[in-house]
Design a protein around this nucleic acid. Structure first.
Lengths: 334, 334
DNA sequence: CTGTTAGCGCCTTCAC
DNA sequence: GTGAAGGCGCTAACAG
């Protein structure tokens, strides 16, 4: 019943609070079978359940972590969050999820609130170049892991997908099938949004290695709302025979464009998306994609964070960036 | 940092802890401008930030709520969670999200953990008929709101979509367009999974009102993994000319079946989904759906819960079930 | 094996 | 206007 305290249990069981505490923490090395029974009885007679806040205050551990994503509505974030939650649950941790919506102030605000709440650590998909803030966290040895994105000069463990490999898979698939004018559309390239930068760079690099000429007109970046317009332009000015969607959001916009123009896929335009999407399998036609290992990424990040939390030494170790491998899902859109 | 306490601030500002406390809580009714300044200075000199855990212990409020969904990977839950998070954030609350995966034990475990953590309230999409547990919470006046599903005899505020109306919109649209053999596929009907029950009942009722004969062969329930098989059977034994997907998961399976059989939609089979899905708009053909007001539902639930939390009187008021209105999204699949 | 003591960091009367 | 004292519920030495 909420307001039953350890003292009540102790009183009823006729022992002291500390004995009850021992019991609760399963430290009954030498506890007599008898007192154990008495305490047991008292506990369920009163319906006692320990107050986690008091314990947290005492132990300076909350067994809670914070996760800051851009927007949980994005499939990628959802997968990440689910994986983190699972991993934490397995370790008796809880997760507070926050949506920063790519707003630096919101991100900062959440970080402040979470720290005030004494969460034991943070997994963040940094939505902004909030360098100073993160540097400060690092200096204070606050357990922190980055996911999907990196921030320069902030030394933390980070989990990313191998973006070069993702693009390589996509491009080689396309080139292998004989496509020659391969477009790439990404969201706006901003310095700190690692996947966009890396994928674009990879695109050039892979095509170069393959000896394929790249026309600048085929490489475009745009806000989600402008993707259809950009597609339109590209198709009329310098029509590609295949297009790579830089991520799931872009893919959706490309599909809207295709739908509105009633373009045949892949005959008129082949499509390949980076990021697997829930509807890829039964889309018409089924969509070939490069799936990021979302689940594995979330789990890895959670594992790294929990390790940092449980082992304070860990905080001093060298930090790494882990690259997880994407996989090509061959379907029929190219 | 982090270990700076109110005492430190008090010492540096040369006032007492309580004065600092007053300051932190903006209770400077009569505080001299001077001490205010001193405290201010001390605070940012030390980079002080109050310890939420200690405050929570003292105030018996954590400004955190728990949300238990079946699985955050489902679009419906994602939307709900996002709306809840937004509403809570606007009120300076945090949200701990848990995935019960339709497992009663997991649900119970989460509820226990969350209560131990002293969360101020719970929003749950009850995944199981854990009646006793919920009844107990209600008796203890623990702030609790149900979402999407109801549990008999548990008197709490609940937010559901108007399932009768949702089905009515779908059926009338179909009948209006001249379809005569309208199938319905839902996940297994279990007593406590309100939307499934209500939608199926509504289907019968609406068709009856319209004077349309219903053939039992057209009404099927199946686990997600069996939906394709059931479609197969239905199409060969008693082919409908239109099918209503009882929810988003079922819709996806129906679409897989359609994809694998290369059926033309809507010529060969019209499709209408209850639950809007992210890809409906650009699917081929664009899918007509009945959208549940996911966002509004989440927000409403959060508002009800926060009201219960902030106003203890509220807990004694009569509880209601709020029905939010779905809307038909006319596209081209029927 | 169990009890005593002393806080964790904050808030809140109640004096001064 | 400000300070002193006590306590929220639990844990961790240290005695016994």
């Amino acid at each position: 019943m909420g307001k039953v305290t350890m003292a009540d249990v102790a009183a009823l069981a006729e022992v002291s609070k500390s004995t009850v505490s021992q019991y609760m923490n399963e430290r009954f090395h030498y506890m007599s079978h008898e007192t154990k029974k008495k305490i047991e009885r008292a506990i369920d007679e009163l319906g006692y359940s320990p107050n986690g806040v008091a314990r947290s205050l005492r132990q300076k551990k909350t067994r809670t972590i914070g996760v800051i994503v851009a927007n949980i509505l994005h499939e990628f974030s959802t997968g990440i969050v689910r994986a983190i939650e699972d991993t934490c649950h397995a370790n008796d941790f809880h997760v507070i999820v926050c949506n920063a919506d790519d707003q630096p102030e919101k991100e900062k605000h959440y970080i402040d609130m979470l720290r005030a709440k004494q969460v034991d650590g943070l997994i963040v998909l940094p939505t902004s170049d909030n360098q100073a803030l993160f540097t400060q966290l690092v200096e204070q040895h606050y357990p922190l892991v980055f996911l999907d994105r990196l921030i320069e000069d902030v030394e933390v463990n980070a989990v990313l997908s191998d973006n070069l490999e993702a693009v390589r898979l996509a491009v080689e698939e396309l080139v292998g099938k004989g496509y020659e004018k391969i477009g790439l559309i990404t969201q706006p390239i901003k310095h700190h949004i690692t996947p966009r930068v890396e994928r674009k760079d990879a695109y050039y690099q892979v095509l170069k290695n393959l000896g394929v000429h790249v026309d600048q007109a085929l490489v475009r970046s745009a806000e989600v709302d402008d993707v259809q317009k950009v597609m339109q332009q590209m198709m009329s000015e310098f029509p590609p025979d295949a297009v790579i969607a830089g991520n799931d959001r872009v893919l959706q916009e490309i599909l809207k464009y295709i739908q509105s123009e009633k373009l045949f896929v892949p005959e008129k335009l082949a499509v390949i998306g980076i990021d697997d999407v829930s509807f890829a399998e039964f889309f018409n036609p089924p969509l070939t994609t490069v799936a990021q290992p979302t689940f594995a990424m979330g789990r890895k990040a959670a594992e790294l964070l929990l390790a940092e939390i449980e082992d304070s030494e860990q905080g001093l170790r060298e930090k790494n960036t882990y690259r997880l491998q994407p996989v090509l899902k061959r379907r029929l859109s190219c």
